[in-house]
Amino acid sequence: MIIIRPIEITDYDALMKCAEESGYGLTSLPTNEELLRKRIDHSIKSFNGQVDIPGTECYFFVAEDCDEKEVVGTTAIERAVGLTAPFYSYHLNKVVHSSREFNVHNVIDVLTFGSDYTGSSELCSTFLRENWRRGYNGKLLSKSRFLLMAQFKDKFSKTIFAEMRGVSDEYGNSPFWKWLQENFFSIEFSQADYLTGIGSKDIIADLMPKLPIYVNLLSKEAQAVIGKVHKDTVPALKLLEQEGFVNRGYVDIFDAGPSIECDIDNIKSLRNSQVLKTVFVDNSDLMEKKSYICSNTKFSEFRASVIDIMIDEIKQEVYMTKEQAKYMKIKESEGLRVLSI
């Protein structure tokens, strides 16, 4: 049984293991002890309302295999990006170069540097270890965040977005970064990615080209990966697209991976989930049980999982066992948020 729960201090070793296995391109999971411990501490303070600057909360979760007693994945929600450090992206748009006299009309793609997502809530740090990429685990990791948002919508921004990992090879080489490196930088993509992950964004931003970049001047290899995702990120992208997330032309400044966004009120799982009253029964009474993604309605003790339950839509009741309720940290007659898979 996989449970999604807020990260704890004792999860550091497991978090470092996930960071090491995630490889290049997942900026928010750098293999840096100081930063990872700070992220754990900041998440604990965020869940307990103890952050120094309102709006800078980060809610960090782990996926725990209760049978193996092992952390097998991570995910997080940044309440509002760009409040204490700039959050940069490129926006892909078009300009027209036209001359009636010479009968020339060219529409050209350009990348414009900016901070348009400042104040928006970000889905980030999503990683599932390879041996657990099966069944409903990926869906649970992705959708559990929306169950929390549904219960505590006032804690999040109107716009929810996610940066998707862009194209790079097994050594962390990005075709888009290679062009930037040759023209503006003298460091490797893996180093730039790491510096951003540990908070050194100003150093990188100082070297980025500030004026719009004409896409047709980039190398063919760099042009080909703009707005494309890493092969390991395709399943995560599809899950978010099914929720209603769309690409409005924003891409990452390092690997050109797409940023996708959705109005919080239009997220499918958030709209379709419902809270039902729990009734405890014996396992033998769950004759017509089905699998649902479920969460309790608590915040600092949030729990989410895929469990087999029965629902009575007329009575607005959900039937589950005491053992299931124990994992979900829920008492009889309390509300359980359920979502059909």
Score class of each variant (00 low, 15 high):
R5Q: 14
I9D: 12
L15W: 12
M16E: 12
C18R: 06
E20D: 08
S22I: 11
G23D: 10
P30F: 04
T31W: 04
N32C: 14
I40F: 07
I44W: 02
V51N: 02
V51I: 14
I53F: 10
P54H: 06
E57Y: 04
F61A: 01
V62W: 05
D65C: 07
V71R: 04
G73Q: 08
T74A: 03
E78C: 08
G82L: 10
F87K: 00
H91N: 14
L92S: 06
L92P: 02
N93A: 09
K94A: 09
V95C: 05
V96P: 00
S99E: 11
S99N: 14
F102C: 06
H105M: 14
I108W: 01
L111R: 03
T112S: 15
F113A: 05
F113V: 11
G114R: 08
D116K: 13
D116E: 15
E130K: 14
E130G: 05
W132I: 06
W132H: 14
W132S: 10
R133E: 05
G138T: 09
K139W: 03
F146P: 00
Q151E: 15
K153L: 07
K155I: 09
K155G: 02
F156D: 02
S157G: 08
I160H: 02
I160C: 00
F161W: 05
A162M: 08
A162V: 12
M164V: 10
G166H: 08
V167M: 08
D169Y: 13
E170P: 03
G172N: 03
N173T: 10
S174G: 08
S174F: 05
F176H: 01
W179R: 01
I187N: 08
F189H: 02
F189Q: 02
A192C: 10
I203M: 13
I204N: 02
M208N: 05
K210I: 09
P212Q: 01
Y214V: 15
S219L: 04
A222K: 02
A222D: 07
Q223E: 11
V225E: 05
G227L: 09
D232P: 03
D232A: 11
P235N: 04
K238V: 10
L239M: 15
F245A: 07
A256D: 06
S259N: 13
I260M: 03
I260H: 05
D265S: 15
N266D: 12
I267P: 00
I267S: 00
R271V: 11
V275Y: 08
L276C: 10
T278R: 01
T278A: 10
V281R: 05
S284E: 14
F299L: 13
F299T: 02
E301K: 15
F302P: 02
F302M: 09
R303C: 07
V306P: 01
V306R: 00
I311E: 00
Q316G: 05
V318L: 07
V318W: 02
M320I: 12
M320T: 08
T321V: 10
I330V: 14
E334V: 11
L336H: 01
R337L: 00
V338D: 01
S340P: 03
